[in-house]
């Protein structure tokens, strides 16, 4: 699976309540339209950051996008296609917390 990228969308209560299903669908559709094939969009049980829902994490690049809105999908797609990371959605989550989740992902839990 070397080189494979993952976009993980939280599907716990708060994230779903704030539209993570719709975000996931929009991102999948956007990736299809742009013909991107090396990214797998997957649901994730929970990132434990419900206060900043909905949450999206890119693995293994360690980008965490929090409180994502439908209007942010285009910028995220641009990032996935080689554009800059979406700074305005980053750094909302406590760094220790981020590290905890990144380690879970690095250990292979997704």
């Amino acid at each position: 699976m070397e080189g494979r990228r993952y976009l993980l969308v939280c599907r716990n209560i708060d994230c779903r309540g704030r539209g993570s299903d719709e975000l996931m669908a929009a991102i999948k559709k956007g990736l299809d339209e742009r013909g991107v094939e090396d990214i797998e969009v997957k649901e994730y049980m929970c990132f434990g950051a419900c206060h900043e829902a909905p949450n999206i994490v890119l693995h293994p690049s360690r980008h965490w996008y929090a409180a994502v809105k439908p209007g942010d999908v285009k910028a995220i797609l641009d990032h996935l296609c080689g554009g800059p990371a979406v700074e305005r959605l980053m750094n909302k989550i406590d760094p220790t917390h981020r590290e905890f989740i990144f380690q879970l992902l690095d250990a292979g839990l997704f």
């Binding site: 716990n12 209560i13 839990l109």
Partner: peptide, 10 residues
């Protein structure tokens, strides 16, 4: 509680 769902499912 989201935390409980997170822990038990993780």
């Amino acid at each position: 509680c989201p935390a409980c769902r997170m822990e038990t499912s993780t």
